[in-house]
Design a protein around this nucleic acid. Structure first.
Length: 915
RNA sequence: GGGAGCAUAGCUCAGCUGGUUUAGAGCAUCUGCCUUACAAGCAGAGGGUCCGCGGUUCGAACCCGUGUGCUCCCACCA
């Protein structure tokens, strides 16, 4: 395996990598002077060299000017993040769009940055402190934050450095962070203004509680997973209203027996015949003997479990609603960390799942457990800590989403913002139409602290500063002093800052109307994963509309989710996520970019397979070898002389030039439609098939022969143009080849692409015909076991002889013919090959295997006859002839003529064989 | 329970507005080549009930209906 040693350490701090690039580059330049082109392409040094060069030249930095901007803001990765496949896909796509825009005269601006990721970062810091023997609870808020910033400065943002390895052309001077001072200020401003408008409120509601992170979670942060559980059937003794024993029982089914101490009712369906006789009675909660009422509600499903439901308003979303409806008592039996509190009366201090085990044992021992069933249902887990989420009643801050969602929904539905692929519009609409209020408070220290200030009497004020808050509070209590009031301890949900990202990176809120935001906003394209369409995309649209009065972007490109070969999502816990940096070292960044792009149309999940990286590496190598071939000709140019071979090479040039123009238009069209992988495929095939396999072979001079100087110069131009097309996708090798082809002072990275040119269809057709002829003749050689080295004599019976005379040279070497003759008659004892209306007779020394040939011909004849039949049937159909478009009918006539000609040839050939 | 999407070669996928479709590409397979750019390569080949069924149409991989299978999203049946 070719695994060149990495010239630089893999993981470096923020400054290290750039430095490493510089050192490598100078070493490389020294070596370069006497360097021959290596056998295979070796990417590592070349990639480091060019990235440094581009940075030195400041190509990625953007300032407002007279050009049209092309703006992309990076979806800010977590500051704790490490580059993985998803990032690689996402950022490669952005880089392709940005580089292409840069080469098309736009002022391309791609803004990098990171997200403070409150839960993830706080968890990392807590972990780091624990290793040093420090507990969070022993620290003051300020002390903790000091450690957190220390951690952020030291380890945070590694991912941004890693993006350089894959070639991302980000404007590094614009690197933003969601907790930069200006940004922080804007987040607070937004909170205050939404509060003043009545769109933010404080309320006690059921929330999703993360018992590990000790914080509330928004609905979107809860992952529901199918979980194997047990459904326990528990018997509750019944009492009459007067307290006398009925000697009856009611059996309920529950998956959470540890919550029975929080039960405050048992509920049955009012129409359930089985339970009508117990309406109005009371049940006794086992183990703790609390007396609770039997209530009725249509909410209960009669056909599930036993049809009787225990109601625990403190620990279940539905039970809470039932509780409110029926005025039930709320008994909260859990502490913050998921252990039982004194309200539980028993097993106090024990973890909820430990308590469950013990309670089940006790219930069974005391005869309350009548049945246990296996049961699978969806359980909520914290996205960040994977703890089972505990529904909990709690006082939190909320955003009223109803008013914000309207304009954001419209913007997408009326295509002011375009989704690619459009299918995500439905998903978006569904969510927006059923939107719920957003819980934005988090019980964390790392993040934007909620700007609410409390007076000792519990009243509070929301303001951008403590002083402002004090003034507000003093209006009702003039004796209040600054030291009397206390700021809310909680932080805001991370998304409450990232929803401002597309404009706040240009200080759209902290410095309203500044020249930058006026120029760059709204941004052009957002590239992101469909997973965060609600978390982020929807909220950015709301924020853009609300705070800037304008959409945040024109287009949203949704990538697929990168999965492993078995279709599983890549995740840390599965360990199926490959080490991206190791892959880059092994295959090269261009190959990785190629591999991940070649099979990933917008919105389709991609099954990651290393073989596509191999394909990318092989493509690099192909390019490298084409370069070597052309470089061999550099010193062997001959002045143009009028000789018969001239015409041949003219044809090749003319054909490729037209082909290039055609493909350029095609690629352009695909790029406009965001069909990136198709565009890459098209370029790949243009280079490998048309340029290398056909064009270069057609113009290739004989062994140690000179090449026509004009042809050579044209070839350089074509190769450069191919590199131009390829550059956005594979920036490193294309830049390298651009410079190795000729001594260029400019750089491909900022080269402006020429306007599209028209192409001549008839030349392209002639080229296709030539390819067909060559392939057919080669196939005939193969089938007749003519060794590649054995030359043939070729007889051509053509409708237009001249067209072959002008390309004789190409034909001679492509099919290894020693001579070409033209004939009007069938040539006996030859292999006959028909292409369109022309016939080719291969004369060879070799004994022909007539039996095999005959069998082949008969098979073909059969096929052609069948085909002709279907065509004739179609043409015989009056309604077809009446209704179909003229071109379609013409085409069918052509098919008919071709098939008939072909059948005739086959018959002649069979006759020829018989002789 | 509600919604969305997908089903094309052994595998991964293209196939945009129904007609250049006699359905393509890469990988894998087979045959022949170490031809002085490239064996990480070259020249070829084989391989398909376009998930089943029904319909619309002169014409369907494509549109409609239906069945089956898979995936994802949303939702409070303990």
């Amino acid at each position: 395996m070719l695994n060149a040693e990495c010239p630089m350490p893999l993981r470096l701090g923020p400054q290290g990598l750039h430095k490493a690039f510089r050192i490598t580059r100078s070493a490389f330049c020294l070596k370069r002077k006497k360097m021959e082109l290596s056998k295979n392409y070796i990417p590592n040094e070349i990639e480091a060299k060019w990235y440094t060069h581009w940075l030195d030249k400041d190509y990625f930095s953007s300032k407002p000017d007279g050009r049209e901007p092309y703006t992309v803001v990076i979806p800010p990765p977590n500051v704790t993040g490490v580059l993985h496949m998803g990032h690689c896909l996402n950022n490669t796509i952005q880089d392709i769009l940005v580089r292409r825009a840069r080469m098309h005269g736009k002022n391309a601006c791609w803004v990098p940055g990171t997200d403070h990721a409150s839960i993830a970062t706080e968890a990392k810091v807590v972990h780091m402190l624990r290793e040093r023997g420090i507990t969070k609870s022993s620290l003051s808020r300020d002390e903790f934050l000091q450690y957190a910033w220390e951690w952020k400065e030291k380890y945070g943002g590694i991912i941004l450095q890693q993006l350089k390895k894959i070639g991302c052309s980000l404007d590094w001077e614009r690197t933003s962070f969601t907790m930069d001072p200006d940004y922080y200020e804007s987040v607070i401003k937004v909170f205050v203004s939404l509060y003043e408008e009545g769109l933010i409120y404080r309320g006690k509601r059921m929330i999703n509680w993360d018992v590990k992170a000790l914080t509330a979670l928004s609905d979107e942060e809860v992952i529901r997973k199918e979980t194997q559980q047990k459904l326990y059937h528990l018997q509750y003794r019944l009492e009459n209203a007067d307290g006398s024993d009925t000697a009856e029982h009611v059996t309920i089914a529950t998956v959470r027996p540890e919550t029975i101490m929080g039960d405050t009712a048992i509920c049955v369906h009012p129409n359930d015949e089985r339970y009508k006789h117990i309406h109005g009675k009371f049940a006794i909660v086992p183990l703790i003997n609390r007396r609770i009422p039997i209530i009725t509600d249509e909410y209960v499903a009669m056909d599930f479990g036993t049809g009787a439901l225990k109601v625990t308003p403190a620990h279940d979303m539905n039970d809470n609603q039932l509780g409110q409806k029926h005025g039930l008592e709320v008994v909260d039996i859990f502490n913050d960390d998921g252990t039982l509190n004194s309200a539980a009366e028993i097993y106090v201090g024990l973890d909820r799942f430990e308590a469950r085990k013990k309670i089940v044992v006790q219930l069974e021992a005391e005869g309350y457990l009548v049945k246990t069933e296996d049961y699978t249902s969806e359980v909520g887990y914290s996205e960040r800590t994977d703890a089972v989420v505990e529904p909990r009643l709690s006082l939190q801050w909320w955003v009223d989403m109803k008013k914000l969602s309207g304009p954001a929904l419209d913007a997408v539905m009326n295509e002011e913002i375009n989704f690619h692929p459009a299918k995500f519009k439905n998903l978006y609409r569904h969510w927006m139409e059923n939107i719920k209020d957003w819980c934005i408070s988090r019980q964390l220290w790392w993040g934007h602290r909620i700007p609410a200030y409390y007076a000792p009497d519990g009243s509070f004020a929301v303001a951008v500063s403590k002083d402002d808050a004090l003034k507000q509070l003093q209006s009702s209590n003039s004796s209040l002093q600054s030291h009397d009031i206390r700021q809310d301890d909680d932080c805001l949900d991370t998304w409450f800052s990232s929803w401002l990202w597309p404009f706040e990176v240009f200080k759209g809120l902290s410095d309203p109307g500044n020249a930058e935001v006026e120029y760059y906003y709204p941004t052009n394209t957002l590239v992101t994963a469909p997973e965060i369409i609600f978390f982020w995309v929807a909220r950015m649209i709301m924020a853009g509309k609300k705070f800037m009065g304008e959409k945040p972007f024109n287009d949203v490109y949704f990538t697929g989710i990168v999965r492993d070969k078995q279709g599983r999502k890549m995740s840390k816990s599965l360990g199926n996520s490959p080490d991206l940096l190791a892959l880059i070292d092994q295959y090269g960044a261009d190959a990785v970019r190629f591999g991940i792009m070649i099979a990933s149309p917008a919105g389709n999940d991609i099954l990651f397979d290393e073989s596509s990286l191999e394909q990318g590496r092989n493509f690099n190598n192909k390019l490298w070898n084409a370069l070597k071939l052309i470089k061999m000709w550099e010193g062997r140019q001959a002045e143009t002389t009028p000789n018969p071979k001239q015409q041949t090479t003219n044809f090749a040039i003319e054909w490729f030039e037209n082909r290039l123009n055609l493909v350029k238009s095609e690629v352009n069209e695909m790029m406009v439609q965001f069909r990136l992988s198709e565009a890459l495929k098209t370029i790949y095939s243009l280079i490998w098939d048309d340029f290398c396999s056909w064009y270069l072979e057609w113009i290739k001079p004989g062994f140690e022969q000179p090449i026509d100087a004009a042809v050579y110069q044209k070839t350089l131009v074509y190769f450069e143009e191919l590199m131009e097309l390829l550059h956005p996708f594979m920036p490193f090798i294309s830049e390298e080849i651009y410079h190795l082809l000729q001594d260029r002072k400019d750089d491909l990275c900022v080269k402006q692409m020429a306007a599209l040119q028209s192409f001549d269809g008839s030349i392209l057709e002639a080229g296709e015909l030539l390819k067909q002829v060559i392939s057919a003749l080669r196939d005939a050689r193969n089938k007749n076991q003519i060794k590649p080295k054995d030359p043939i004599k070729l007889h051509i019976q053509a409708t237009a002889e001249e067209s072959y005379r002008s390309i004789e040279n190409i034909l001679l070497k492509q099919v290894n013919a020693e001579s070409i003759f033209y004939t009007a008659e069938t040539v006996p004892n030859t292999i006959v090959v028909a292409v369109e209306k022309d016939k080719f007779f291969i004369e060879t020394e070799r004994q022909l295997d007539t039996a095999t040939l005959q069998a082949e011909l008969l098979k073909d004849l059969e096929h052609q006859k069948k085909f002709l039949e279907t065509v004739l049937k179609k043409l015989g159909n009056e309604r077809f002839v009446q209704n179909a478009k003229n071109e379609v009918i013409e085409l069918e006539r052509k098919k008919q003529a071709d098939a008939e000609a072909r059948i005739k040839t086959i018959l002649e050939s069979l006759q020829n064989l018989g002789e």
